[in-house]
């Protein structure tokens, strides 16, 4: 239960995540689904959020796990 409260309340990326998700949801519904997919419009929000998330995953030593998983499945699909 300790993990749960830690994860839910103090995620340092949550403000950046919300900003990015709001931008993405709007772009997805109003542009991407309507065939206007030549440009992703949330790059600034994405860069800020992604940097935060990757840093956090590295801190929690999770980064290598996801990389390994990606490599394994890339091999399977070859």
């Amino acid at each position: 239960m300790k993990d749960k409260s830690k994860l839910a309340s103090s995620s340092p990326c949550s403000a950046l995540k919300t900003a990015y998700n709001e931008c993405f949801n709007k772009w997805y519904a109003e542009k991407f689904l309507k065939g206007q997919w030549e440009k992703d419009e949330c790059l600034q929000e994405w860069e800020a959020y992604r940097a935060c998330v990757l840093k956090r995953m590295e801190d929690r030593k999770l980064h290598h796990l996801f990389k390994m998983e990606a490599m394994l499945h890339a091999k399977e699909e070859d």
């Binding site: 998700n21 959020y49 990606a70």
Partner: peptide, 26 residues
Amino acid sequence: LEVDTIDRKLDSSHGKLLTKRAITVN
């Protein structure tokens, strides 16, 4: 418990969106 987008690629010539998310569950 937590969901984060960790990678996203837009294939703008074919209208495909590829996303990788990290999900933490009980």
